[in-house]
Amino acid sequence: MTDDYETRKDRVARFMQALPHCRALNMTLVDIGPGEAVMSMPWDEKLVGDPATGVIHGGAVSSLMDSCGGTAVMVHPDGPGGTATLDLRIDYMRPATPGQTITARATCYHITRTVAFVRAVATDDDTERPVATASGAFTVTGAGA
């Protein structure tokens, strides 16, 4: 990988660390590519939605998907200066296994001067069976990078 890639990834990771909610959920940037982002969130007792099973609340998965989707937009080659979620649909396939880290992969597969379209998948250790998928539209604001 080139220095450019490392510099860019560091910059995105630092930007994310400055977002209080991402920090509160211990989200980390795993990887970026052109219009792609991979982000993870470790299991945490405070994120549990069902105390009987220890399964993480769908809302925490939404937060990860939303952050990862926004990041995918920001690292698109035609990347905007800023972005915000317009709409986001999450489909929940199965409960995430308690204790396992959740990883989201988002792709910004189309971008115009005003709107970016994003798909995302979340998995736990069993990467063959998605925990959730998401699709959304994001705003495109500000000057390109």
């Binding site: 400055a18 977002l19 909610h21 991402c22 769908g58 937060s63 939303d66 926004g70």
Partner: peptide
């Protein structure tokens, strides 16, 4: 979510 505005994180709103 965005400390510059500041604004509530979209994920929080969804949750």
């Amino acid at each position: 979510g965005n400390p510059a505005l500041p604004a509530i994180h979209g994920g929080v709103t969804a949750a």
